[in-house]
Every structure is written in structure tokens, then in C-alpha cells.
Amino acid sequence: MSTLPSQPRIRIPRSARAGEVIEIRTLIEHPMETGLRQEAGRALPRDMLTRLLVRLNGETLLSADFQNGTATNPYHVFFVRMEKPSHFEFIWTDEKGRQARAEARVAVT
């Protein structure tokens, strides 16, 4: 599996109280070029992420399938109630099967 050059950024608290709802923000630098735009009379080649998968302690928490209407540098926010120490994995995949990954751990106090 080849790696995307894209740089993911995750904003997530390092710790939370048991039962607390935390906000997770993710952003990945990516042109999300649809192939419909032209520059100097030539169509810019399609280059799209197809999916974001978020896993929590090894189980699927959320996934997103992207179509043309998802903006450049895909940004997503979602909310999780923390009950135990948690390991989050974030995996973006593009239409050529290349991936970018990030991970985060949240302690529960």
C-alpha cells in the first residue's frame, strides 16, 4: 500500500473525564481535484480522496465516502463519549488506493 504525501492534522484532547463527550477535528491537505476544472484550456487531472475511516479501539467508529462536492483539504468534526482509555486511528484512502494515516490516544481520568 503506497503512502499519500498529504499531511493529516488531528485536534483531539489528550485526556477526558469518564462520560465526557469530546470533539474530534480532522483535516487533511489534499487538492480534491475532480477532473472537471480547466486551467489554461486543459482539464486538470482527477485526484480525489475516496474515503476516511476512523477506528476506535480497533472498531469502526465512523466512515465518510467522498464525492465531487467535498471541498479541498477535507475537514471533519464529530463527537465521541469517552468511557475508557481510547486509541483512535484515522485512515484516508485516495482513488488510486494510496493511504494517509494518523493516530491518537485519549486517557480517561
Binding site: 463527550v21 476506535l56 472498531e59 467508529l61 465512523l62 465518510a64 465531487n68 462536492g69 467535498t70 471541498a71 479541498t72 483539504n73 477535507p74 475537514y75 471533519h76 468534526v77 464529530f78 463527537f79 465521541v80 463519549r81
Partner: peptide
């Protein structure tokens, strides 16, 4: 596992 059915994103129109 999500605390609520809420998603925020950015789109193109």
C-alpha cells in the same frame, strides 16, 4: 459509538 448523530464538514457549491 458516536456520542451524537452530528457531523461537520466543508463542501463546494
Amino acid at each position: 459509538m458516536l456520542a451524537r448523530a452530528e457531523v461537520q464538514t466543508r463542501i463546494r457549491l
